[in-house]
Amino acid sequence: MSSSYLLRRTGYGLLLMLGVVVLNFLLIRLAPGDPAVVIAGEMGGATEEMLESIREEYGLNKPVLTQLAIYVGNVLQGNLGESFFFNQPVSKLIADRIGPTILLVITAQLMSIALGVFLGVIAARKPNGAMSAFVSVFATIGYAVPVFWTGIMLIILFASSFPIFPVEGMQSVKLRDAAWYVQTIDILHHLVLPAFTLAIIYLAQYARLSRASMLEVLGSDYIRTARAKGASEKSVLFKHALRNAALPILTVAGLQFGNLISGALLVETVFNWPGMGRLAFDSILRRDYPTIMGVLFFASAMVVIANILTDISYRWADPRLRGRS
């Protein structure tokens, strides 16, 4: 892989981020609601003078385009502004919460790809078998069920009937001072339900996609060649076929990353997971413009990075794409 390709790809990514910043800013200003009213409400009642002074303090009385120029200038200097509500720098708010979100999103992504592809491959072995039928039904259900409903059902199931997994938060309060490995296990224990909830919808998609992709690949000439040289069925499936079937799966995995982050917002809210999703949810309710924009900025950065990584891995997986731009 040429480094000039990487450089160009990163350049495009940065331009895209700038576009996202401008668009986010304008979209949020278009939405109804006045942050000054909300802030004043938090302070307990508001007079017109008070609202004016709040607008003055936060720069909300300037023309929108001036506000945009100031904001973009600040972002370029690495300053995402102060939260209207928390009275803290937005970057600090996000820094405190981005770790749990990344942990949740990546765990869900890996879980859904690994399980989904495995189910899909098994199903493709016997396209008319029981496993294949199960994958199809499971995929349809998994895709159709809203993520917050799955989450609430799991909470009901594991809070009352089988209380083996914690249904709320990321850590047990009483273990905050325990040894690091105890804390790690505790966090993983808390991670199970939210990650599974987030994974299930994508897991179903990957299962369907890998089943279809594997079926197509298994009918190709080079699979017959592999069998003709005496390769075992396991090698035919997991070496010769899966490497080729993985290409469309990789594409979808990259594209899904954005959806996964917006899914995380819901899951974090349902499970009270202390990540960026909760922060986004709270700041939308409070018209906390700088925080919303900061969260969106980081979410879009994660999507852009995920897309670049997808591109790179696609080139790694498919030699036909190497050396092309």
Binding site: Y222, T225, A228, N244, D318, R320
Partner: peptide, 15 residues
């Protein structure tokens, strides 16, 4: 051993 009709598609593209 066997040689097939389509050399263009009979080899695995990723190896």
């Amino acid at each position: 051993a066997m040689i097939f009709q389509e050399p263009m598609t009979s080899l695995n593209p990723v190896f």
